[in-house]
């Protein structure tokens, strides 16, 4: 599927359910105050969105809802056309395999090599090492880690760890990719290269949502933007940036 990241509806064929749909969603941690309230938006399948907002606006909380690490305290979240509240617990791992996540703090396993970290989703999915080894190496070369395949994360720079985290998130060609500040620790040239990787993935059909403070990055693609402030959505991405 080829899409134009600047058009919010370009990748939303009438038949395909939205990858993500929020309807009046609110969220709180424990008994605390709502950190997100009345969120309603949709990420059409195959779309490319940015998520912006000041620190504390609730971006990370929103991403947690999307990658099913948290449950909403109210409202409806639909993932790939299924009400997430009705998905049985035992089916959640299958759903998570359709989602790639790049964390701001990378969350690489410190005792595994870069190769093993990147291959983790495929290993968990039960694939044989021989079947994915070449793909992993090719991807690592693409993100500029071809010479760090055997390195352990503690020996990598922040930028290298970030690239490894991105590689891990995209290696299984997920249907939905969520990235929290994916270019925060790399130089502009590498940031551009990584962005191209995400755009390429989007062109192949992956729905992409990138949370970023980087206004330059957000504007560079002209993709629709979801903007959060104080836990509320002040722009639902329906208008192109």
């Amino acid at each position: 599927m080829t899409t134009d990241p600047r058009d919010p509806d370009a990748a939303s064929p009438q038949s395909a359910p939205a990858a993500v749909r929020f309807d009046g969603v609110g969220m709180r941690y424990g008994r605390g105050p709502e950190v997100l309230s009345d969120l309603s938006f949709e990420l059409p399948s195959g779309s490319f969105h940015f998520l912006t907002g000041p620190s504390g606006a609730g971006k990370t909380s929103l991403l947690k809802l999307i990658y099913l690490a948290q449950r909403p305290s109210r409202g409806l979240i639909s993932m790939f056309g299924r009400d997430s509240a009705l998905i049985p617990r035992e089916s959640l791992p299958d759903l998570r395999r359709r989602i790639g996540v790049v964390f701001q703090d990378f969350r690489l396993l410190q005792h595994l090599t870069v190769f093993d970290n990147v291959a983790l989703p495929l290993r968990v999915a039960g694939q044989a090492r021989a079947s994915y080894a070449d793909d992993v190496i090719d991807l690592l070369k693409w993100v500029g880690l071809g010479d760090r395949i055997d390195a352990l994360p503690p020996t990598l720079s922040g930028g290298e760890q970030q690239r490894a985290a991105i590689a891990r998130a995209v290696i299984s060609k997920p249907e939905l990719l969520i990235a929290d500040e994916p270019t925060g620790n790399v130089d502009p040239e590498m940031a551009n290269r990584l962005l191209r990787l995400l755009v390429e993935l989007n062109r192949l059909g992956t729905t992409v949502l990138i949370a970023s403070h980087d206004i330059g990055l957000v504007r560079s693609l002209g993709a629709p933007v979801l903007e959060l402030a104080d836990g509320k959505l002040i722009d639902d991405g329906r208008r192109a940036a």
Binding site: R96, R97, R107, L108, A125
Partner: peptide, 16 residues
């Protein structure tokens, strides 16, 4: 817990 969480987020079921 880092291992468990990383595995969980890449789709490993509890049984794994």
């Amino acid at each position: 817990w880092d291992v468990a969480e990383a595995l969980h987020l890449v789709g490993a079921p509890d049984s794994y």
